[in-house]
Design a protein around this nucleic acid. Structure first.
Lengths: 129, 129, 129, 129
DNA sequence: GTGGTCTAGACCACC
DNA sequence: GTGGTCTAGACCACA
């Protein structure tokens, strides 16, 4: 399982994003222990300092806390996670709409394109299964 | 007009994307001359080296060509631009869908959320006008 | 009673300081038995190893002695305690003066600021009572 | 000029404190450029990453900002610096008072001790000059 | 030249 | 075992 990172963005931020997504999908629940720095480093095939920096960013955002000598844990404060979910959803939507408008799409175009793309992707998946 | 760039991604790539979008929206037509490096540097408020690098990337992708002593021009080959349009559209769609799925959204969720977001944005714009 | 420690300094040294202060205030007299490691660990809400390390440091400095099978005791040698009192007082004074000078305070400023701060703190305490 | 750091506190935090003090004493004025990371690393005889981390902390606190490819600068916002000055002054005062009370000093004792200490220090300096 | 990121490897404090 | 700090050295984006 080779981890692939975008060359043009800091690895530690991409790791932050992935862990956020895992938390929001419920793979890590509030209060859960995150993987040890050294384990995560092996899993992502990066240096432990890079994981440490990603965890620092999560802590800075209030998404995680560390307990001395025990590990790093997802915050138990659900409201922080709700806020995070809302913020990420908004960012993704706005970026997408902005990008599609840059290409000259109207609102109706955007929805239509998305629908047909999802349908064609669906049928591909059905074929594969 | 302050230009805003994402701190965590190379500026020259962000400029490449914006120029591509301008071309695809028809603001620059096939064969048109792109702004001189020095002018674009002033417009984007960045160092001229950064613009130069962005133009190099456009040339590498076949989207622009330089004619010595005259400047940098959008390619006259419409097929390249069509290909570009298709590729960017695909990237934007795939990134968006991937991100929303990371948050736990199903295909139906994604379309619904997008629709309601566009509607609420619309009504806001109507109020403003 | 939640014990609060400075995150950026070893806990065992902070505990050493607190125990020294207790001794110098007379809460533990020369020859008195210090709390058992396990009790102190509960009181400070830290791991017993941390207390053990703090006691080792006290012993190293000659402030405490262990009698095998009996426990750890404050030294009966008053001169050691006098020396300790003098040393801590000097350290606190010098650190404080150095810090205030770093902020640009003159000697007169320091005394004046301290006086007014103590007065305002006093009046607050009176109000509360 | 050998730089000396307290073994028991992270070097990067001690550097943060020193730079803060320099700013508050007016050695760096609002908007001034701080030394380049590499220069500061040589001056403090530490690794450049350590300086980088110290600067990150200054940035996090709003005391400094960095301009891409140009350097790191003291914030031009005087109010942030005023707030910083007030906060450091309060911390130093409270720590000192708390420590002296731990040794059994009353408010009057503290002031008296400080005054006599400053006087004796003064006369020493006079002798030296 | 200036800051930002990453790796490899070491040592320490705490549980 | 867990996180925190530090060094040495490398490469990159930007001005």
């Amino acid at each position: 399982m080779e981890e692939i990172f975008d060359e043009n963005q800091p690895i530690y931020l991409q790791i932050v994003q992935r862990i956020c997504a895992q938390i929001l999908r419920g793979e890590f629940k509030p209060g859960d222990k995150l993987p040890a720095v050294i384990d995560a480093a092996m899993r992502f095939k990066v240096n432990h300092n890079t994981i440490h920096r990603a965890y620092l960013e999560l802590i800075r955002q209030g998404i995680a806390v560390t307990r001395r000598g025990e590990g790093t844990f997802v915050t138990a404060d659900q409201s922080v996670l709700d806020e995070l979910h809302h913020r990420m959803r908004k960012t993704f939507l706005e970026d997408f709409i902005r990008q599609m408008r840059q290409l000259g799409f109207t609102n109706a175009d955007i929805i239509e394109t998305l629908q047909s793309y999802l349908q064609s992707a669906n049928s591909k998946e059905e074929k594969q299964s």
